[in-house]
């Protein structure tokens, strides 16, 4: 176990998750979906780390692995504890994880299926408090009302059921629930993707306010790059279970180093109509590769405009490019790719 930099809250190293594909009567394992394959990155305390990529690239699986909803196939997850020590939570058993669960929480994509419709807000938001024995019934009620106020809902709503609320409000209930135990880390998996643009913007502002107030650290997952631009400090781009680029947000938007990032960026709508025609559009051809049967060499090569023979044969490493940037491409140094912010 190597030491963490002082400002790092979570360090993920060599994370792997291979889901077995089972067939037939005897449930024989006939192959593996390599949903996450050798992913490493650090999240600094108090920052928002954005994780982007097309559907099926393994973003949700990464979040679920970090929160230990799944068991790992391989890898380490170092999580800094309140006392400053760092703990590898990748091999802890469920009982040992319980105290850790207080420190990390998740906000879900679907505001409908993530709240049990048969529980009142008091039971929903109070559940983590009850499980971890935080106070008497009265104290829990007070805390739930406080949390509701915090996310901009009226404290009288405690006895209502989720069906009384709109999607955006439900998402806030989910946020209140995630905050109940004062976690240091929150993974938001497509937390606003299901909402209207204006409601999504409101909820992003709320998340930013809460981050400032409580010094929260976010892992913010989305397939929509325009969403992460405002909230993330740094961004990781995933393709078929692998991290292909990590960079500070500004730098990534100004000058992507990986052809996949360039293609994703060119799909971001341009707010300024006059600038629209000036931009180069790199259409992504074809479908995302199947993680059960990834292409040889660089998994992106069948869709890459810059691919060479080397790309087909040799798997590129995630290389450090300086200035906090990393990229997994053989030709990263030689290419000059276009971003969306005029540099």
């Amino acid at each position: 176990m190597t030491a963490l930099a002082d400002d790092t809250l979570i360090s993920v190293r060599g994370l792997k998750k291979h889901f077995p594909i089972q067939k037939g009567w005897l449930q024989r394992v006939v192959g593996h979906v390599k949903a996450v394959d050798d992913v490493s990155f650090d999240i600094k305390r108090g920052e928002t780390f954005g994780l982007v990529g097309e559907s099926g690239s393994g973003k949700s699986t990464v979040a679920r692995l970090i929160l230990r909803a799944y068991t790992l196939t391989a890898g380490e997850i170092l999580f800094r504890q309140p006392d400053g020590s760092n703990l590898d939570i990748s091999t802890l058993r469920e009982a040992e994880l319980r105290p850790i669960r207080e420190q990390m929480q998740m906000i879900f994509q679907d505001p409908y299926s993530s709240l049990n419709p048969r529980m009142t807000l008091l039971d929903l938001i109070g559940e983590p408090l009850i499980i971890h024995g935080r106070g008497s019934q009265g104290e829990i009620r007070d805390r739930v009302q406080e949390l509701l106020t915090l996310v901009g809902l009226r404290p009288e709503y405690v006895s209502r059921y989720p069906h009384a609320f709109s999607g955006g409000q439900r998402q806030r209930i989910g946020i209140a629930r995630a905050l109940a135990l004062n976690p240091s880390f929150i993974a938001a998996d497509e937390a606003v993707s299901a909402l209207d643009v204006s409601v999504a913007a409101q909820n992003i502002n709320l998340l930013q306010d809460l981050q400032e107030k409580f010094g929260l650290t976010y892992l913010f997952i989305t397939h929509d790059l325009s969403m992460v631009e405002h909230i993330s400090n740094r961004i990781g781009v995933m393709y078929v279970g692998r991290l292909v680029e990590v960079a500070p947000t500004e730098a990534l938007f100004a000058k992507p180093l990986h052809p996949y990032t360039e293609a994703l960026l060119s799909a971001v709508p341009e707010p300024d109509p006059r600038a629209r025609h000036a931009r180069k559009r790199v259409a992504l051809k074809g479908e995302i590769a199947d993680p059960a049967n990834a292409p040889s060499g660089c998994a992106f090569h069948p869709r890459c405009a810059y691919a060479t023979d080397r790309c087909k044969a040799e798997v590129p490493e995630l290389r450090d490019m300086g200035q906090g940037r990393k990229v997994r491409c053989h030709h990263a140094d030689g290419l000059s790719l276009t971003g969306v912010i005029p540099a």
């Binding site: 669960r101 709240l115 049990n116 499980i131 629930r177």
Partner: peptide, 22 residues
């Protein structure tokens, strides 16, 4: 596979609680 069952699990709910309450 409901998200709220996973949410309960991630809050540290025991298997018994998940089955009886959710």
């Amino acid at each position: 596979n409901e998200d709220y069952v996973m949410a309960a699990r991630l809050s540290g709910a025991s298997e018994f609680r998940i089955i009886t309450k959710h």
